[in-house]
Nucleic acid binder design. Structure first.
Lengths: 167, 167
DNA sequence: GTGACCGGTTTTATAATGCAAGCGGTCTGG
DNA sequence: CCAGACCGCTTGCATTATAAAACCGGTCAC
């Protein structure tokens, strides 16, 4: 492989792969929002990504092995995007970024509750969540005993939303 | 404070502050390379940052509270850049990014040894290093008992460089 | 068959990045 | 006292990335 990076530093290379304003947002929505189709990612986007940017980022992430794309058997025009081991392994980075943002930036309550739970749960919870993502995205066998971390995070989020919507 | 972020999500806000190709590189060089002056950051840059980009990033990081700037008493034109608690708290993110890059990207041995030590040392080592950075950058009182993490990382790096330079 | 939906592309405008040269002041060595 | 290196930037210009909006041909449910 040709060395196409500015340097051999792992921080730098990670930044060259993920260091822009949208790549991690796309992965976050697939990961925590379970959005698997182009339109889902486009229309439910909290930050309002443009369709050409989304198309470009999906292409780049496919190229670099952070996503895979498959045809949806239920609809000839639909594509399903899935995480790979490489992107599932970003969970610790997401967790630490979430914790840092929660501490130093003016985040909103409903969008920070999941980050807070991830921080409190620590590495054991991250491992559970990663295993769950492998089931969802890589067809890994499922352990029926384990309660779903995804559902736990989702429930906590919806609970805050409901509470804030109430008079 | 006016809400100038695309959304209230902590991941998104962290990305809006640090999600470009240079901001974290600058902080990394101050943090792990102990480069405190403009020229040091410019000329020793592994990735070859341009002077206008460096000037712009330093300004942005000052604005956002990730760096402070002070006059160097030894030279009227020199400025000393220092980390803040906000940027020192990025250590876990750096550690996780380093670990991820080490695992999935074609990093070089000499530039990944520090990331490897940080990963192996885990959170206790991160805490020690953060305390050390507070001494260096925030004038926190020093514990003379503790061996220096900074020196340990630096020594490991230089050892790999020396070994690779030998015939 | 029609209207909503599918994953995108095209067009055009603006902003970020990158490179090279330069700037006025300061400090060092002789 | 003066030449030359050094100081933190700035400027000008070319290239590249991002963004908003409109649009596209095919597909699906009713």
């Amino acid at each position: 492989m040709v060395d196409e990076y500015r340097s051999g530093c792992p921080i730098n290379q990670t930044l060259e792969v993920l260091g822009d304003r949208w790549s991690l947002i796309v992965i976050r929505d697939i990961m925590f929002g379970n959005r698997r189709h182009f339109r889902e990612l486009l229309q439910n986007s909290e930050e309002g990504i443009a369709s050409n940017i989304l198309a470009d980022r999906l292409k780049r992430l496919l190229d670099r092995g952070l996503l895979t794309r498959a045809d949806d058997p239920s609809h000839k025009q639909k594509a399903i995007y899935s995480l790979t081991e490489m992107s599932i392994s970003l969970i610790p980075i997401f967790a630490e970024m979430g914790a840092w943002g929660n501490r130093f930036l003016p985040v909103s309550e409903e969008l920070s509750i999941r980050a807070q739970l991830l921080e409190e749960g620590g590495r054991p919870l991250w491992q559970d969540f990663m295993q769950e993502l492998r089931v969802l995205h890589l067809d890994a066998p499922r352990d029926p005993q384990k309660p779903s971390v995804f559902e736990k995070l989702q429930a906590a989020y919806l609970e805050v939303v409901a509470r804030k919507a109430a008079p």
